[in-house]
Simulated assay, not measured.
Amino acid sequence: MADTLLFHVSDIHFGLENNEALDWFAAEVDRLRPNAVAITGDLTMRARHHEFRAAEEWIGTLQAPATLDVGNHDMPYFNLIERFVTPYKRFGRLTDIVEREIDLPGIALVPLKTAVRAQPRFNWSKGWVTGRALEDCLARIDALPAGTRALVTVHHPLREVGTQGTAMTRGGSNALAELAQRNVLGVLSGHVHDAFEIMEDTPHGPVRMIGAGTLSQRLRSTPPSFNELRWDGETLQVHIRNLENIEDEAMKIDDVPEDAHPPREEGEPVAPVGAVPRTDPPVS
């Protein structure tokens, strides 16, 4: 079986996007032609109409099928009626790829919704895996052909990952425990703006968690990046693709440790398992 190539990108934040990083990513899609692109939420900055139009135009240029998770920034901020009644209305034609399952030979991208319209805590930006969302995701996984591995796509990491850009996802630990009982290869997420990869233990075994950085100007401790994933039918390799020489110091969010990786626990290797950072030259 030929290798399956996947690109994982997150937190593009149209409205405060980094155009050099977007051009670089699109050029890599055109050059390498991945089998699919997973965009794990926060496509826009404030869910404004013009931000969605710009996002739609850019995604339309990508030479690969895409799936899009909804992030906390992608639901109306200033129109609560619209947020509660028609929260996805502004996605327009992008609705066709929202929470879209992509089935490939031996592997599938399966969405799990973590962004909700409202929740019983002050900070609505945090994640929540509702019972209904988890049931829908598990049903999709259970319906896959025998032997097919699932990569679950979410916006919020399902548990805290050691960065100060927090997730605090309600229901995340339960979701991980349920996923561990199925043929899940890993969970792809965004939200914290820095790439990471860890193995999370659950009562039913470990689950691999893979986070993508950002292609926006809202940098934390690392430059714009995306994840390049290669699946050969047995092993999933993850390469963190960094764009160097980005002069966005004024936009950096200084709430993440410099190394951007989770703190090392006893017995855990110093580097994230399987993650191979790779820095690419700036786009000319």
Score class of each variant (00 low, 15 high):
M1Q: 12
D3Y: 02
D3R: 13
E20N: 09
L22S: 03
F25P: 04
V29F: 01
D30W: 03
A36I: 01
V37N: 02
D42G: 03
R48Q: 13
A54N: 10
E57C: 01
P65C: 08
D74Q: 02
P76H: 07
F78W: 10
N79P: 01
I81C: 03
P87G: 09
R93D: 13
L94E: 10
I102A: 08
P105Q: 05
P105K: 06
R117T: 15
F122W: 10
N123H: 12
W124R: 13
S125I: 08
K126G: 01
A133Y: 06
I141S: 11
G147I: 10
A150H: 06
L151I: 10
V152C: 04
E160W: 00
Q164W: 10
M168G: 02
A175I: 06
R182N: 06
S189K: 03
V192K: 11
V192S: 12
D201P: 14
M209R: 12
M209G: 02
M209P: 02
I210M: 10
A212R: 11
Q217V: 13
F226P: 00
N227R: 08
W231C: 07
W231R: 06
G233S: 13
T235S: 14
V238N: 14
H239Q: 13
I240C: 15
N242P: 00
L243I: 15
E249P: 00
I253H: 02
P263D: 14
G267E: 01
G274S: 04
